[in-house]
Computed example of a mutant assay.
Amino acid sequence: MAAAVRLLRERCLFTAEQLREVLGTCPAVLLEEPRRLHHHFQYAYFRMGVSQKEMVKARLFQMPFPELRNRHIFLERRGLYQTPYKGQTQTSNPKLKDILQLPEEDFLASLACATTEEYDVFKRLLAREEEEEEEDEEDRNARYAEEDEDVDSEGSDTA
């Protein structure tokens, strides 16, 4: 628990007041693994361009990270959310609070302008993309390990 509090205070730079609000509205963060909690924060801060103040106001940590990511990427791919470049965006992004707190049906109808079927298909395709990326990463790691073994065995033959 202390590790989660320290992470939110020191690495995520929440003020004492913001931290109190986060812990009051989402005490489950205390049980979260610090690495995962930090990843959740970093995604919202860097990828979505959201400030700590907005995260607290929207209650970021109440939504599981995979659902936040699904909703964000869905909006992004539909052209309805733009990752800020150095704090600047060409379009007006939806508020984090709307992305997080609207029930899925309302999120789809009012923000994403999509059907439940479209969102379900999107989530399945995104999961498949992630699986393929993981497999590609595993293949690359296996090839590098084989290359390292080949180099090691060549070096031992000549020694």
Rank of each mutant, 00 (worst) to 15 (best):
R59W: 02
H40D: 10
F74C: 01
G87A: 07
F41Q: 02
F65L: 15
R143A: 11
E54N: 08
L7P: 05
R6I: 08
L31T: 04
D98E: 14
G155M: 07
L37A: 09
E132N: 11
P94D: 03
E129C: 13
E105D: 04
L102M: 05
D136Y: 14
L68P: 12
L100T: 03
Q62G: 07
A114V: 02
G87Y: 02
L111T: 06
D152Q: 08
I73C: 00
L108F: 10
T115D: 05
R20I: 04
A4P: 05
T83A: 09
K123D: 10
P66E: 11
A127H: 11
D148G: 13
D139V: 09
A16C: 10
Y81A: 01
L8E: 08
Q52Y: 02
G87R: 03
T15C: 09
S153W: 11
F107C: 04
E118L: 03
D136Q: 14
R143E: 07
P84E: 09
F41N: 00
R128L: 14
G24S: 10
L7W: 08
L68A: 07
K53F: 12
R59I: 00
E133T: 10
A58K: 07
L13V: 10
K53I: 01
Q42D: 04
E129H: 09
A145I: 06
R59N: 10
E129R: 12
P27H: 02
L23T: 10
L102W: 00
L68Y: 04
V56T: 07
Y85I: 02
V151P: 01
V121M: 12
A3L: 12
V50C: 02
E149G: 01
E21R: 15
R47D: 13
V22S: 08
C113M: 03
T115M: 05
T116H: 03
R69K: 14
L100W: 07
E154T: 00
E118W: 02
Y81M: 07
A3G: 00
A4L: 02
D157L: 11
P84S: 06
G49R: 06
E149R: 14
M48N: 03
R20H: 09
L13G: 05
D120N: 03
D136K: 15
F14E: 03
V151D: 15
E118Q: 06
L100S: 05
E149L: 15
K57R: 15
L68I: 03
H38E: 15
E32F: 01
